[in-house]
């Protein structure tokens, strides 16, 4: 197969990647409930059962300028994990944001990158994926989705519904594709992941500038 780097994978290429014998080259999307999820240049992904909603807390704000250890000890206070079983729904009211995740567990081989794009049919109702998510090569886990209702009517979030699309692109040179699975302690998330913005190295420098505001 002759695929250009950066080119979007087409339906046949996606199918090949899903079934290749070479496990290091294989694209895993598990479970893929219907072949119809594979479009001409993307794969539809479904909404998972676990959500993170934001809690009202006694703290003034979620402040990454605070020392990281102090903030991590409070992370649980800002979030509430909710499990919605198959056959039930979570109602997302206007101007609300929740973190959800894909039903599918995804593992990308080292030469593929994926972009998660909201489905326009949902977007027209006001439900948007509030950040463009880039899934890195070698990623293994469910993809966290930032779901925001920008419309005027409450919307049901129903686990199992097709919620977004994965657009797959080639990412690296062929030389590196034989490499085994990437090593990282962040692999293997099975539910939505809360923001880890406070882990950025830059905060140390910024803390000095802002004098710990």
């Amino acid at each position: 197969m002759n695929v250009e780097h950066g080119a979007i994978l087409t339906k046949d290429e996606i199918k090949d990647r899903l079934t290749t014998e070479d496990l290091n080259q294989r694209l895993f999307i598990t479970p893929l409930l219907s072949n119809e999820q594979i479009g001409w240049a993307s794969v539809d992904v479904r909404l998972g059962n676990e959500f993170i909603a934001f809690r009202r807390t006694k703290y003034a704000m979620f402040n990454p300028l605070e020392k990281s250890e102090k903030l991590t000890s409070r992370i649980g206070d800002f979030q509430e994990r909710i499990y919605i079983p198959l056959g039930e729904r979570l109602v997302l009211h206007p101007q609300q944001l929740v973190l959800g995740c894909t039903l599918e567990y995804i593992r990308l081989p080292n030469d593929l990158v994926a972009e998660v794009v909201g489905r326009s049919s949902w977007g027209r109702l006001g439900l948007i994926l509030s950040a463009a998510t880039l899934v890195h090569p070698g990623f293994a886990g469910v993809v966290t989705l930032e779901l925001a209702n920008q419309g005027d009517v409450p919307l049901p979030l129903v686990p199992g519904v097709r919620i977004a699309q994965l657009v797959l692109k080639r990412a690296t040179s062929r030389k590196q594709t034989g490499q085994k699975i990437l090593k990282s302690r962040y692999l293997g998330s099975v539910g939505p992941t809360f923001s880890k913005i406070y882990e950025d190295d830059d905060w140390d420098a910024l803390r000095k500038l802002t004098n710990g505001l």
Binding site: L23, T30, P31, L32, L187
Partner: peptide
């Protein structure tokens, strides 16, 4: 077992076969 070695939950024997 092979799936676990790729950090994948062993939910399917093959695509479409739980």
């Amino acid at each position: 077992i092979e799936l676990l070695d790729l950090v994948i939950p062993p939910a399917e024997i093959e695509i479409g076969k739980p």
